[in-house]
Nucleic acid binder design. Structure first.
Length: 142
DNA sequence: CCGATGACAACGC
DNA sequence: CGCGTTGCCATCG
């Protein structure tokens, strides 16, 4: 649990932003950070998910927050330090949502950001020309 | 209280 | 264009 109220607000913003991710789509930590107004703190976003409460009574938990839809900018699922198998769990959850996850030779679970990437807001960086990650090339439905 | 680490990302070479 | 290093801030020891 957060030690500061400010941190709690940050966590709340992160969880809230993640809940906005439609099913069958994924986004990056950096984008979440940008959405909540702190594009310079993508790492803290990951920490928030790490601290995601398991209590079913909590407003934010693994059931209400689709943490599985949050991946890194490389379009892959990085192994956690504490629970290495957690990446597999995330990949499995994404597959159930209709998102194909394939592991390359390096064992890195990769997701097609170009197809399943969810980038709704026009960030100042990508507003002009600065495009990153990938764009919704096909844009399907939800 | 101070130092090290981390579910990341961007810049430099 | 791929690999290495730095920055960010909360949490752990």
């Amino acid at each position: 649990m957060p030690r500061s109220d400010e941190a709690e607000a940050f966590y709340h913003a992160v969880y809230s932003a993640i809940q906005e991710i439609p099913r069958g789509k994924v986004t990056t930590y950096g984008h979440i950070a940008a959405l909540i107004g702190t594009p310079d703190r993508p790492r803290q976003v990951g920490i928030c998910l790490k601290h995601l409460p398991n209590d079913p009574d909590a407003e934010f938990n693994g059931e209400t927050v689709p943490w599985q839809r949050v991946i890194n900018s490389k379009g892959g699922i990085s192994p956690r330090s504490n629970h290495p198998a957690g990446a597999q769990t995330q990949a499995n959850a994404l597959r159930e949502e209709g998102i194909p996850v394939e592991a390359n030779e390096m064992g890195e679970l990769r997701v097609d950001l170009a197809k399943y990437g969810w980038f709704p807001t026009q960030l100042p960086s990508e507003a002009g020309d600065g495009e990153e990650e990938g764009e919704n090339g096909g844009e399907g439905r939800e």
